[in-house]
């Protein structure tokens, strides 16, 4: 009886710590942002096209960081989605069982490599390679870290999508084969739609991972907030900016310092919205298919 009480208390403490941490994070973000927004208007924050808090001529427009974040994330998804899905379909439909068992965990290692390594890989290997193909490419750019990040998040998509494909009932496959469908036709017309909610979940996860990724972009994208959709020039993402300021010599408590909280809040709201949208899409999709 006593033992149970202790365990119960321990579990409660764990839950409480998690909850308190979350509340704490939100509290710090909000309170610091609050004092930030006393000096900078929300309107400027959302509409100004420059982000230069560390310069003499200060501008506090979040748009360049937001587009930078989106640009890199989209590039990463353009790489990860087709490759990840192809791998998932291949592993599920074509690969021999033993091969699948070996390759799946190997792929998952991709996500376990420290991101610093990816960052340097982007900077010293991928960028020079790309520069041979695209002569105007800057040494720092969105393209190279975007591609490398895409590779990093492949296993999020391939692994989870493969699980989703795997769980499509055998009877649906057989129905399709039975009418003369090839394996590829079956994969695209039956398996993918039937596994759509699981695949969507994998995409959401990969997307969130890409948005939150810091090291690769901090190292290889250059740290120049710039409102552009051009992937060949240096840009900065929200996370990279936060790292830059946290590691720099900006005095604590200053307005410059508080920018990282307002940027963090923007990121928080942004991912929160994305998650909700995808949750909503997922729900809608599910209703259609179940």
């Amino acid at each position: 009886m006593k033992k149970e009480k202790i365990i119960e208390g321990f579990l409660f403490a764990c839950a409480a710590i998690t909850l308190l941490t979350t509340i704490g994070i939100i509290w710090v973000l909000l309170s610091q942002s609050f004092s930030f927004f006393k000096e900078v208007s929300v309107w400027d924050f959302l509409t100004d096209t420059q982000w230069t808090p560390l310069f003499a001529d200060k501008h506090f427009g979040i748009l360049p960081l937001l587009t930078g974040t989106l640009l890199i994330t989209v590039i990463a998804m353009l790489v990860a989605l087709p490759l990840g899905l192809t791998i998932a379909i291949y592993l599920n439909e074509y690969a021999p069982k033993g091969f699948r068992k070996v390759v799946k965990p190997l792929l998952e290692v991709l996500a376990a490599v420290p991101t610093v390594v990816y960052g340097f890989f982007a900077l010293v290997v991928v960028t020079p390679m790309l520069q041979k193909l695209i002569p105007g490419l800057s040494g720092f750019n969105a393209l190279s870290p975007g591609i490398v990040m895409g590779i990093m998040i492949i296993p999020f998509i391939s692994s989870l999508s493969e699980d989703a494909l795997y769980s499509v009932p055998k009877s649906l496959r057989e129905a399709s084969y039975g009418m003369g469908a090839t394996r590829l036709q079956t994969a695209f017309r039956v398996l993918l739609p039937s596994a759509s909610s699981g695949i969507l979940a994998s995409i959401i996860l990969a997307f969130s991972r890409a948005i939150g990724e810091t090291m690769i972009v901090a190292i290889a994208a250059g740290q120049q907030p710039r409102l552009t959709l051009d992937p060949t020039v240096p840009i900065e993402t929200i996370t990279a900016y936060i790292v830059q300021v946290s590691l720099g010599d900006v005095p604590h408590g200053s307005l410059e310092y508080r920018t990282i909280f307002s940027a963090g809040l923007a990121l928080f709201v942004f991912t929160f919205l994305l998650n909700n949208i995808s949750f909503w899409i997922n729900k809608k999709y599910r209703q259609e298919y179940e």
Partner: peptide
């Protein structure tokens, strides 16, 4: 094999319509 299965249709034990 695809041509064969167009010739030889199959109905299964449990109804298995596609979720379409």
């Amino acid at each position: 094999i695809e041509e064969l299965r167009k010739q030889v249709g199959m109905v299964f034990q449990k109804p298995n319509p596609f979720p379409k």
